[in-house]
């Protein structure tokens, strides 16, 4: 039997969820037996080369590239999982949602107390750069998300247990320790 194929990405996140994923320690050896990786920072495959079974999404959507990647994941993965608070509800980046994006940009590039060098008052607008969204959106407001793993980041055990449950079809083990957040 071929192994299930896994893809992962970090959108508007800090890679903390990926780091937590790597916290599975020696189980990383089991992981290799369990799944095959496709597009993911873990193996550095940049584009999908085949249809995947599971996509793990870290981070919400703050720019046009995030939207494209997320839609791409929805198209290429049978199951999508929002991993961590940013994917689930925008998280820390969404703190800017109460402030207009124009104000954010001006503060960052023109008016902020630490802005010294930008004497020509340039705002980055190269077409190579992703366009910023008016707000940071949780992933499920853009595409359908099948499962949600809460935490900032979710514990390695939670990610691991969820992945094993998805692959094996067994019930997800969720002892209190892996879903308490303080």
């Amino acid at each position: 039997m071929t192994k299930p194929v896994l893809a992962t990405t970090s959108l508007a996140g800090c890679f903390g969820c990926h780091m937590s994923f790597l916290d599975i320690d020696e189980r990383i050896l089991e992981l290799i037996d369990l799944v095959e990786f496709n597009k993911s920072p873990v193996d550095d495959i940049k584009t999908f080369t085949k249809q995947c079974d599971i996509g793990l999404i870290e981070g919400g959507c703050c720019n046009s590239e995030n939207i494209e990647v997320l839609k791409d994941f929805r198209k290429n993965c049978n199951i999508l999982v929002s991993v961590g608070e940013c994917a689930i509800m925008g998280g820390l980046p969404a703190l800017r949602n109460g402030i207009s994006i124009k104000e954010c940009l001006e503060e960052a590039y023109l008016d902020g107390p630490t802005v010294k060098a930008n004497t020509e008052k340039i705002m980055p607008n190269d077409e190579e750069l992703p366009m910023l969204l008016d707000m940071v959106y949780p992933c499920h407001e853009i595409v359908k998300i099948d499962y949600f793993l809460p935490g900032c980041p979710p514990r390695a055990d939670l990610i691991w247990n969820a992945l094993v449950a998805l692959v094996t079809g067994d019930e997800l083990k969720m002892p209190y320790e892996v879903v308490k957040f303080d």
């Binding site: 994006i101 124009k102 705002m123 607008n125 969204l133 008016d134 959106y137």
Partner: peptide, 14 residues
């Protein structure tokens, strides 16, 4: 997408 980037595009003139 077009609506949601309109404001930032206007701010940076692109």
């Amino acid at each position: 997408l077009k609506d949601s980037v309109a404001e930032s595009n206007a701010a940076v003139d692109r």
